[in-house]
Design a protein around this nucleic acid. Structure first.
Length: 696
DNA sequence: TTCGGCGTTTGT
DNA sequence: ACAAACGCCGAA
């Protein structure tokens, strides 16, 4: 079958690349998209039937079937693979990869292949962008639960369409103007990658130089009374978990991650800047640039603080720091009031540009204008290089330092479903460069560069040595051995834990016991959903002047989106597949919990017997609980649920015991109230500190 | 939504 | 020692 594509927004046929005359265009009766007739294989049989013609996209029965399939199919399929005891780890890895890419590996037995194809078909069918019929590239998801490629979506909007290309429901203006990539869909990709990393992560380098930071600090970043009272505002930062110096350039690799032996992975996200700092992505607590004047800059954060920033994902324009009045005790300010100069942090970025150093990039949810920013928290997006920098008048009239960042990481970005990282790419054309007074470009060969032979980005020149000095060996060994005992449990539970995060009720935020899936593809506990509409009747009796009129249907909107689900509510069915998946996951977690208790007690006792790190141990326990708490709004999306708010506030005010009040966190407190059942097994087995696992 | 106010780290 | 830093919270 030949490729079937419509005309693009300029009216150019995407198959033959010419702009056909009006009379050669066929208009789809459903989506009104023009198609070039000579390039369409299913032409209408008669001239008269052309005005009822359905384009290949709209007539594709699969595409229609899929509109009711829940997006969690992907996660469920991954889970099925994980739990299939008949598969070897290798087979599992291949299946996972296949689920994600939708591709067939070449050498496979026929039977197996068929099985796989069906899995991939289901996925493609349920998740395909209905504009291009591919698994969505940089997926954005409408409130009606349908996903499209960012580009396809923007094109659609550009054509003036304001309804969903799949189900025709209207698209809210906010979504139309500022679509944001749905990283939940990319979640499974990261998961699979981490799973395969996990298998290989057994070898730990013992020779790398280690830096330990703040080992006396708690895992949770609270110290003062005020910090506790006010949540995490003004909190001291917690312990640093990676063993790189704070002036470390480039990626953070497995040997500097003794807790997990995996290094800092693209796509990891954290609730805030403090946690992000603990895992080494960006060491400064407030500032957007981490760097030292003449030495260079190691990392930056895009968090929307500078209006001139412009994000295109693989490349972006970054504005230097300064130029704003921070007098008084302000930390930030929206308005520029003087010119920026290439000094301090801006100079550091300039040095990184000229030397071609790798710069770690973190995106924050606070960047509202970018489609590439995460919905919540902050996320590590990988290595970029600064290709050019210049001085130019900014939007607010004052001169700003501008930096062109281009991605050059060996891992794909969190918004793509590519299975490879970046290749060297041509520089984007920047119009404002013409107006720039001075442009700085690298003249020497870059320190971080693509190696053609190896097909990888590498250090071509040695990275600048750290100015900090490493700690003495004894300390390191002690800390490392403790890390390693934790790391086993941590690693075994990691994947299960991530999977678990995909199965939380959007109302109570706990793992669902009797899950139901609405037609709009949102998941809830059966009881939560029932409670939500308790006391409401499906029909309204209307009466006027004592006469009973025809009854009217009551609209009942899904708690997660503005879709009327009243019909669905009348016959609420537990999603048995989902329930089975959750139960098998819980059973597995329990199993691991038991095996941990019997086999690794020795390590545990030794640590506890130490006495002096009692503090850290209790902190560990707390954070392990947090790890198993409901997802931090990351994968199920925030729900404007008043119950949630009430519950938190209420608990905060309560006397919730010394252990919990120490946490000073409503979410934590809530947990004590109603968190029970099989997840306990995970809790007990997993005593690693607050982890960065809340992947999108 | 905006705004005041602060405990901390880091570079200089 | 000092000042700046793309934070964070809760009150208005």
């Amino acid at each position: 079958m030949t490729t079937q594509l419509p005309c693009d927004s300029e009216g150019v046929c995407m198959v033959c690349k010419v702009k056909p005359p009006e009379e050669e265009n066929l208009l789809c009766v459903t989506c009104n998209t023009p198609w070039h007739a000579p390039c369409v294989s299913d032409l209408p049989p008669t001239l008269a039937s052309t005005n009822q013609w359905l384009c290949p996209d709209c007539s594709n029965p699969d595409a229609h079937l899929s509109s009711s399939a829940p997006p969690n199919t992907l996660v469920a399929a991954m889970l099925a693979v994980e739990n299939d005891a008949s598969l070897t780890p290798n087979q599992k890895a291949r299946k996972r990869q296949q689920i994600i890419t939708g591709k067939e590996p070449a050498e496979e037995e026929e039977e197996e292949e068929q099985q796989k194809r069906s899995v991939s078909d289901v996925l493609t069918r349920s998740l395909a962008c209905s504009i291009c019929i591919q698994l969505p590239e940089r997926p954005v998801t409408t409130p009606c639960g349908h996903s499209f490629c960012l580009k396809c979506f923007q094109k659609w909007i550009g054509q003036g369409k304001r309804n969903c290309a799949k189900c025709r429901q209207s698209i809210p203006p906010k979504m139309a103007s500022q679509p944001r990539i749905n990283s939940a869909l990319v979640f499974a990709i990261r998961m699979a990658r981490m799973a395969s990393n996990n298998n290989q992560a057994s070898a730990v380098s013992r020779t790398a130089t280690h830096f330990l930071h703040n080992q006396d600090k708690p895992d949770q970043p609270y110290t003062t009374e005020r910090a506790r009272r006010n949540g995490r505002a003004n909190a001291a930062s917690g312990k640093i978990f990676v063993t790189v110096p704070t002036d470390h350039f480039g990626p953070i690799t497995a040997e500097n991650d003794p807790l997990r032996n995996q290094g800092l992975l693209v796509g990891e996200s954290w609730r805030d800047r403090q946690e992000c700092r603990q895992w080494g992505a960006h060491f400064v607590p407030i500032g957007g640039i981490a760097g030292q004047g003449e030495r260079g800059a190691q990392s930056v954060v895009l968090s929307g603080g500078y209006v001139d920033d412009e994000d295109h994902g693989e490349w972006f324009l970054y504005t230097g720091s300064g130029g704003k009045d921070l007098s008084g005790n302000k930390r930030t300010n929206k308005n520029h009031s003087f010119d920026q100069k290439f000094e301090k942090y801006n100079r550091a970025l300039q040095v990184s540009c000229l030397k071609g150093y790798p710069v770690r990039v973190v995106r924050s949810h606070k960047e509202k204008r970018s489609s590439y920013a995460p919905e919540t928290g902050v996320r590590y997006d990988g290595i970029y290089r600064i290709e050019k920098c210049w001085h130019i008048a900014g939007l607010q009239g004052f001169k700003v330092c501008r930096f062109l960042f281009v991605r050059c990481d060996n891992e794909p970005a969190p918004w793509t479903s590519d299975d490879h990282g970046d290749r060297p790419r041509p520089l984007p054309v920047i119009r404002e460069l013409k107006k720039a007074a001075v442009v700085y470009e690298r003249t020497e060969t870059p320190a971080w560069e693509f190696d053609e032979e190896d097909s990888r980005w590498k250090w071509k020149k040695p990275p600048p040595p750290s100015k900090q000095k490493a700690q003495n060996g004894e300390h390191i060994e002690a800390a490392r051995s403790k890390f390693n005992t934790q790391s086993k449990k941590f690693q075994i539970n990691r994947i299960k834990e991530q999977l678990r995060r995909g199965f939380s009720c959007m109302i109570c935020r706990e793992v669902m016991v009797s899950p139901v899936t609405t037609p709009c593809a949102h998941n809830f506990c059966k009881s939560c959903l029932e409670d939500e509409f308790a006391g409401q009747t499906f029909v309204k009796e209307r009466s006027r002047g004592g006469r009973t009129l025809r009854s009217q249907k009551n609209v009942m909107n899904c708690p997660a989106c503005p879709i009327d689900i009243s019909d669905y509510l009348q016959n609420l069915q537990v999603d048995v597949d989902l329930k089975a998946a959750i139960e098998s996951l819980k059973a597995e977690a329990e199993e691991i919990g038991e095996s941990m208790e019997s086999s690794e007690d020795a390590d545990e006792l030794q640590d506890d017997g130490d006495g002096k790190d009692e503090d850290t141990d209790s902190a560990n326990k707390n954070s392990a609980e947090e790890l198993n708490d409901s997802p931090k709004g990351s994968d199920v999306g925030e729900l404007k649920d008043s119950n949630q708010g009430k519950r938190n506030t209420k608990r905060k005010k309560d006397d919730c015991g010394e252990h919990l009040s120490e946490m000073g966190d409503g979410k934590m407190a809530k947990r004590s109230e109603e968190y029970k059942t099989a997840e306990e097994a995970v809790d007990e087995a997993n005593d690693s500190p607050s982890s960065p696992l809340n992947l999108p």
